[in-house]
Simulated assay, not measured.
Amino acid sequence: MAFGGHDPYGPTRQPNAGPPPQQPGPGPYPGPYPPPGYLPQGPYLPPPTLRQRFREDDWPTLTEVLRRIRLHGCVWALLLCCLWQVFLPVLAYPLVRTARSQARRRFPSHPHHRLLDADVLHLQKARAWVALIASAAILVVYDAEADPGEVLEQYVFRLAVTPWLLLLTAPLVVLILLRVVPAAARPGMRTRLRPTVRTALLYVAAFTVVPTLTVGLVFLAERAQETNADDRTRLIALGGALVLIVPVIWTLFFVVFASTTVVRSAFGIGEVHLALPALLTGVLVWELAAFSLTVAGMPPGPPAVRIGALLGGPLSVSALAWWEISRLRSRYGVTLRGTGM
């Protein structure tokens, strides 16, 4: 038996053979599927700038960089013809990009377990800028004839020494802290220490590969320039030197980018105990001050300025480290004698 008369579900077509009515779809568009060219409505987010992309762990590719630089093709051709020596470092950009990406992946700058206090970070940045301005002012006022190259060499040398001081200091600080914490918390800390040890060993291996490859490259280059060797030996040595150039450049930049994150994160030692980064920083800054005093001597200037420049940095860093430890205790309940998590 039929109810509702003929065609109780309503007409499927408009009168006069018009198009069928549109059924409501799941989205804001008519029909079950979006029409061609449909863009969902929402807040428009502009693409990140090159400066923002270079702040990320994964830099933009060389093609993306060249596309952002809006120059006519004739201008590019003119620059390549006249200034082709300047564009030679551009060819090394893909190597530098992959080295930075792998370094940030193997050595993250901020481990996920570490509590990042915004106030502490802001004060640390402010202290770093004040220290940089004060050091520059002392050099300009009291040592105007200082060689900028020598100053830069001392800074790079200090940056290269810092990871090795970390490798020597971190085990001692961890052993002392293991003696302080309760016995029940020690197995968990030892378990969390294993990734940190692996990270440190990886850094040591990468740092060791750089001089090894460099020595091999220099040996092959000298072998290729020997006049008493036959042509076949010189050709093989030249080919080996050209092959070694790429891994030497890649490994060198890998170590440079890894060192910048290793110094900040201390091989991810915050995974073991949240107070360890601040505690280790407070110890390491005094070691660096003693090392700088042994290598470079006293800063220039009157006795009061020398003492202030020598002790101002370690004292301010130690005060910030102690303040960070006290905030961990007051805000998060993390103590040096606790589990640290």
Results as ranks from 00 to 15, higher is better:
residue 30 P to Q: 06
residue 3 F to A: 09
residue 234 R to N: 07
residue 123 L to F: 12
residue 128 A to T: 14
residue 55 R to S: 11
residue 176 I to V: 15
residue 138 I to C: 14
residue 225 Q to I: 02
residue 205 A to H: 06
residue 163 P to T: 00
residue 99 A to T: 01
residue 41 Q to L: 12
residue 58 D to H: 11
residue 313 G to T: 15
residue 218 V to D: 01
residue 297 G to I: 03
residue 316 S to M: 14
residue 155 Y to H: 13
residue 35 P to K: 10
residue 90 V to G: 04
residue 307 I to C: 10
residue 137 A to K: 02
residue 255 V to A: 00
residue 218 V to P: 01
residue 241 A to D: 01
residue 146 A to T: 08
residue 74 C to D: 13
residue 181 V to T: 03
residue 50 L to Y: 05
residue 222 E to K: 12
residue 269 I to L: 07
residue 292 S to F: 11
residue 174 V to L: 11
residue 81 C to M: 14
residue 336 L to G: 04
residue 211 P to D: 01
residue 305 V to N: 03
residue 146 A to E: 07
residue 175 L to D: 00
residue 210 V to D: 07
residue 230 D to F: 07
residue 44 Y to M: 10
residue 272 V to A: 03
residue 265 S to I: 07
residue 313 G to V: 13
residue 65 V to A: 00
residue 163 P to A: 06
residue 217 L to M: 11
residue 31 G to Q: 04
residue 311 L to A: 09
residue 300 P to D: 04
residue 77 A to F: 05
residue 55 R to E: 14
residue 288 L to Q: 15
residue 211 P to S: 01
residue 242 L to Q: 13
residue 278 A to N: 07
residue 266 A to N: 08
residue 123 L to D: 00
residue 303 P to E: 02
residue 17 A to P: 01
residue 332 Y to C: 10
residue 108 P to W: 00
residue 34 P to R: 12
residue 166 L to E: 00
residue 29 Y to W: 15
residue 291 F to P: 11
residue 320 L to E: 03
residue 26 P to I: 00
residue 83 L to D: 02
residue 25 G to Y: 05
residue 305 V to A: 10
residue 293 L to T: 13
residue 30 P to D: 02
residue 128 A to W: 12
residue 134 A to M: 12
residue 264 R to Y: 02
residue 259 S to Q: 15
residue 3 F to R: 15
residue 3 F to Q: 14
residue 57 D to K: 08
residue 146 A to F: 03
residue 66 L to T: 08
residue 238 L to S: 10
residue 79 L to M: 08
residue 161 V to Y: 02
residue 98 T to I: 06
residue 56 E to D: 11
residue 287 E to L: 15
residue 260 T to I: 15
residue 328 L to E: 01
residue 143 D to W: 08
residue 196 T to S: 09
residue 110 H to F: 08
residue 15 P to G: 00
residue 116 L to H: 06
residue 248 V to A: 08
residue 226 E to F: 05
residue 284 L to W: 08
residue 254 F to N: 04
residue 321 A to C: 05
residue 223 R to S: 13
residue 311 L to D: 00
residue 33 Y to V: 13
residue 256 V to W: 05
residue 178 L to T: 00
residue 186 R to G: 02
residue 112 H to Y: 10
residue 162 T to M: 14
residue 237 A to Y: 05
residue 219 F to N: 04
residue 106 R to Q: 10
residue 139 L to T: 03
residue 266 A to F: 11
residue 154 Q to R: 15
residue 87 F to Y: 09
residue 306 R to L: 02
residue 282 G to C: 04
residue 143 D to I: 02
residue 43 P to V: 11
residue 209 V to F: 03
residue 266 A to P: 07
residue 80 L to Q: 10
residue 223 R to L: 15
residue 151 V to L: 13
residue 274 L to W: 03
residue 284 L to P: 07
residue 250 W to C: 04
residue 275 A to C: 11
residue 41 Q to W: 09
residue 324 E to Y: 02
residue 24 P to W: 03
residue 2 A to Y: 12
residue 17 A to T: 15
residue 53 R to Q: 15
residue 27 G to T: 09
residue 181 V to S: 03
residue 265 S to F: 09
residue 261 T to C: 06
residue 10 G to C: 06
residue 329 R to G: 07
residue 102 Q to W: 10
residue 190 R to W: 07
residue 290 A to S: 09
residue 77 A to W: 07
residue 4 G to D: 06
residue 151 V to F: 02
residue 63 T to W: 09
residue 154 Q to G: 11
residue 304 A to T: 11
residue 6 H to G: 00
residue 46 P to G: 02
residue 42 G to M: 07
